[in-house]
């Protein structure tokens, strides 16, 4: 399948304008790019857990979805869509449905890493043919920037604030992409909206997979990260270059790096965002060091998995 932009712009716009996401939102960029990877001549059912994307795209009596869409609750988008997929499989077998359908969840990191993890794990383990996309902005943005399992250590959020006795989030984030990969499903990938061609190619593979697929997409949020709104794509690009968000895929168990990068120090990336501003005070030097060490260790681990060493 083509990843030429001239071809991609011919694709249907499954997400219509008129949604109420913030100006400069990374989530809708992720959605648009993922859906550029939908094969021709298939129908879609899209699901959201509760979150920014959901509340902004389905405000009754308006829907921004140019296709079938369901939201039921926060922790269960994977389970909800697994039911839709199961219905499709049997109704198709019974001859009641003729068309080919694909199923996609777009969940935030809260709905994926935290509250929705169990339902996601169950869905991946059961082998439903659906694509689960995490639009990861590293905190609960819909409720006003609270820490999640995806929030980077040292990051300010409204529930990991900076204060006399706190220097932001104490704990490191969990490796959700590796958790998904541990389900031994056909396709898992980590992607970034900045690397659109890589992302679209991953979406194409995910839609083609004969089973569950999981894509974790870095989708910066300027409200939560504290940077000017026009820099959303730039932030994502810097994260990739600092190797704090490496781009890779796990295709039928084989790990591959999908973007060549010249690894940059993480400080340069952190400096651009207000959520890390306090880390540049003298007393927080150790945290900066610890973040870099975490990034280095994770990067080494990844290189080993991808047999790049």
């Amino acid at each position: 399948m083509s990843t030429k932009l001239a071809d991609l712009v011919q694709k249907p716009q499954y997400l219509s304008g008129g949604h109420r996401l913030c100006a400069g939102c990374g989530a809708s960029i992720a959605v648009r790019q993922i859906l550029m990877g939908v094969p021709d001549d298939v129908k879609l059912v899209i699901a959201n857990p509760t979150g920014c994307l959901e509340v902004s795209t389905s405000i009754y009596p308006y829907t921004a979805w140019n296709t079938s869409y369901i939201h039921s609750a926060f922790e269960n988008a994977a389970a909800t869509l697994s039911g839709a997929e199961a219905a499709y499989q049997t109704l198709k077998k019974q001859g009641k449905i003729k068309e080919d359908f694909r199923f996609v969840v777009f969940g935030g990191d809260g709905g994926t890493y935290d509250i929705g993890l169990q339902a996601l794990s169950g869905t991946l383990e059961r082998g439903h043919r659906l694509v689960y996309v995490c639009y990861n902005n590293e905190a609960y943005m819909n409720t006003g920037i609270q820490r999640s399992g995806a929030t980077i250590m040292g990051s300010w959020t409204t529930t990991s604030p900076y204060g006399r006795y706190s220097s932001g989030k104490k704990e490191n984030r969990k490796d959700m992409t590796a958790i998904a990969a541990a389900h031994n499903i056909p396709y898992v990938a980590q992607a970034s909206i900045s690397h659109w061609r890589d992302l679209v190619r991953k979406a194409q593979k995910a839609f083609a997979a004969d089973g569950p697929a999981f894509i974790n997409v870095l989708s910066p949020c300027h409200r939560g990260w504290r940077y000017p709104m026009e820099k959303t794509v730039e932030m994502a690009k810097m994260a990739v270059q600092a190797c704090i968000w490496p781009l890779y895929e796990v295709e039928n168990g084989k790990w591959n790096l999908t973007a060549k990068v010249k690894k940059q120090p993480v400080e340069g990336y952190l400096k651009t965002q207000g959520r890390f501003a306090h880390l540049f005070q003298e007393e927080n030097k150790d945290i900066l060091k610890a973040i870099q060490e975490n990034v280095d260790a994770e990067w080494e681990k990844l290189l080993n998995l991808c047999e790049q060493k």
Binding site: V9, Q10, G17, A27
Partner: peptide, 17 residues
């Protein structure tokens, strides 16, 4: 077509590529 791929609001109009 880079603007098309990065627009969060599906507001870049394209026709015939």
């Amino acid at each position: 077509l880079i603007c098309y791929v990065f627009c969060p609001d599906s507001a870049i109009l394209a026709r015939d590529g």
